[in-house]
């Protein structure tokens, strides 16, 4: 197992999770079906997050698109009292009454620019949407892989992953995943939230190890 291969695997899993938490499109089922063999080739089963990821992919493959759209709206789109489980980071870490939301979003936008990503990141989703943040992690993993392939120093990309994980994703993602598991009546989103929780929990330990200097045995 090389570190470049691990980077590609993590990129793939983040990208899969980002697709899963975007508004369900007709390609989603194909993405889910195509993801498993690719990730398997990259050594998915070597890692603790494999089983939840496989379960999420299987749940999406058999899901009906209309049911998914209904579940997505029920869980993530604002109703009268707000979304059951807001997919926006700022709903968890910023106080809207104090006007902190716009400030937090601006900070995120600045962070993305600092990483070298354009304003188009996340497609139609807000900068603090879970799908956007997962897409950012996927791109940072891709950057790490590219640097390794080009014999460039990957430390910058790994440091950015660490910074983004600890500063942006970790403070809210566990709470978000718990809320989804509690509120979801459609198995697919529960499975997806479990996979995301497993991935972030794994990276919480793995990324600092990737940052450690390479020593001698």
């Amino acid at each position: 197992m090389s570190l470049a291969r691990l980077g590609r695997l993590r990129e793939g899993v983040y990208r899969f999770a980002a697709a899963g938490f975007s508004y369900p499109a007709s390609e989603l089922v194909d993405v889910a079906a195509g993801t498993v063999p690719v990730l398997d080739d990259l050594g998915l089963f070597d890692y603790a997050f494999a089983l939840p990821v496989i379960e999420a992919a299987e749940a999406l493959v058999v899901a009906d698109l209309h049911d998914l759209e209904g579940a997505y709206a029920a869980l993530f789109e604002a109703g009268v009292g707000g979304a059951a489980c807001s997919p926006h980071a700022t709903a968890y870490v910023a106080d809207a009454r104090r006007g902190e939301v716009a400030e937090a979003q601006a900070e995120l936008r600045a962070t993305y620019r600092g990483f070298g990503f354009g304003d188009d990141i996340g497609g139609g989703d807000m900068v603090d949407h879970v799908a956007t943040e997962l897409e950012v992690m996927a791109r940072l993993c891709h950057d790490e892989t590219r640097r390794r392939a080009e014999n460039d120093d990957p430390a910058v990309a790994v440091r950015r992953q660490h910074e983004f994980l600890t500063g942006s994703l970790e403070p809210w993602i566990t709470m978000f995943c718990r809320r989804v598991c509690d509120a979801d009546r459609h198995h697919a989103y529960t499975a997806l939230a479990a996979a995301l929780h497993a991935l972030v929990e794994h990276d919480r330990e793995l990324v600092p190890l990737l940052l450690a200097p390479v020593g001698c045995e």
């Binding site: 570190l3 190890l209 450690a212 045995e217």
Partner: peptide
């Protein structure tokens, strides 16, 4: 005895 990232991740599955 193998706490480096290279050894952790290049010698086989963790």
């Amino acid at each position: 005895t193998r706490t480096t990232r290279r050894s952790l991740l290049s010698l086989g599955p963790p």
